[in-house]
Computed example of a mutant assay.
Amino acid sequence: MKRLFPAPLLTLTLWALWLVLNLSLSPGNLLLGALFGVAAPLMFAPLRPLPVRMRKPGVALKLLMVVGRDVIVSNLAVARTVWLAGHKPPRSVFVKVPLDLHDANGLAALSMITTVVPGTVWSELALDRSVLLMHVFDLEDEAAFIAHFKSAYERPLMEIFQ
């Protein structure tokens, strides 16, 4: 059964999404939705990440709060920098952040956090996952930025995933 339905919840969700998007419960749409719901997880099963084991959900909740705060603070900082760009242009730089986090799920979460926080962009990850190249919109102190990045995001993700 697991071979035919590697992700039963995903199969049901895709089938329901198909029906909702087509706004029809006709037999053809029921069949096509079911076919899509079964075929897509089978085709993409090799691409699914390893099973996730969250070790410390409390740390994950705290990380969520930190990211939420940083999103708000960074939005305000980027808006201020853009507003005052005529007086003081931003100091955009690429920063190499050494990584201790090597778990694939943790790195995926870190890439999403980096993308969500305004003013930072995940640019490249070394093949051995030891260094992350990031673009930072406006940076005053590289060492302080790296220290904040590692303590605010990387260490909690290591606690959660490794």
Rank of each mutant, 00 (worst) to 15 (best):
G68K: 00
G37Y: 03
I113V: 12
P27S: 06
L47N: 05
L139S: 08
L17D: 02
G37L: 03
E154V: 07
A7V: 02
E124Y: 05
P51Q: 08
M43S: 09
L30R: 13
D100M: 08
P41S: 03
P89F: 11
P57Y: 13
P46W: 05
L84I: 00
A79R: 09
V66E: 07
R91H: 12
K88E: 11
L10V: 12
D138E: 08
I113F: 05
T13C: 14
L32M: 12
V95H: 01
F137M: 05
L10P: 02
L107H: 03
T114S: 11
W18S: 00
H102R: 12
P98S: 08
V97L: 06
L4I: 12
K96D: 04
T120G: 06
L50G: 10
F5G: 01
P57W: 13
L76M: 13
W18F: 05
S123T: 04
L50V: 01
R91I: 00
S26P: 10
V59M: 14
V67Q: 11
V121I: 15
G28V: 15
G37K: 06
G58Y: 08
T115G: 11
R129D: 15
H148K: 14
P90Q: 13
V131M: 09
N75P: 00
P90K: 11
V95A: 06
S130Q: 14
M1L: 09
L76K: 02
L12Y: 07
W18P: 03
K62M: 11
F44Y: 11
E124H: 15
L101G: 10
S123P: 00
D70W: 01
L127P: 12
S130F: 04
E140M: 00
P8Q: 05
P27K: 07
V93S: 08
A126R: 14
